Simulated assay, not measured.
Amino acid sequence: MTEPSPNDPAAVALELERIRRTIEVGFTRTDGALALLVQRHDQSDETQKEHARRLDAHDARLDTLERGETERQKRSDGRLDALERARWPLPSVAALVALCGLLLSLWQLTSR
């Protein structure tokens, strides 16, 4: 087989068609790779948004706990207040015991 001459229009057209096909295949591969990268980027953005949303929810719950605004904390505070009101203060008990001791001492002293 003989090589086609460079001035042969059919040979030039054939070579141009081969170059065009090679470029099309290259562009198709590049488009596919870019589409895959775009899809991964979108998934990454969605994942980051989900993580940010969850982090905001956790922050809000922590703020609520720090302020003591949960129902359980409110119930505990109410019970604690009720217990503090219901207990006898220690200084009052000590004063009553001392008064009783004084009265008993005076009664014994007067009964002799």
Rank of each mutant, 00 (worst) to 15 (best):
T2D: 15
P4C: 02
P4G: 11
P4Y: 08
P4R: 08
S5A: 11
P6G: 14
N7A: 15
D8Y: 00
P9H: 03
A13W: 07
A13Q: 14
L16K: 09
I19F: 02
I19L: 10
T22E: 15
F27K: 09
T28I: 01
R29P: 01
D31M: 01
L34K: 12
A35N: 10
A35C: 03
L36C: 07
L37V: 04
H41G: 11
S44P: 03
D45C: 08
D45G: 03
E46Q: 13
T47N: 07
Q48D: 14
K49V: 07
E50N: 09
A52V: 01
L55M: 08
D56W: 00
A60V: 04
A60E: 13
R61D: 04
L65Y: 08
L65R: 12
R67L: 03
R67M: 00
R67Q: 01
E69W: 01
R72L: 05
R72T: 07
K74E: 08
G78D: 13
G78L: 10
D81L: 07
D81N: 12
A82T: 06
L83A: 04
L83D: 04
R85A: 11
R85M: 08
S92W: 06
A94H: 11
A94V: 08
A95W: 04
L96K: 15
L96F: 14
L99P: 05
C100W: 11
C100Q: 13
C100H: 14
S105G: 06
L106E: 10
L106Q: 13
T110A: 13
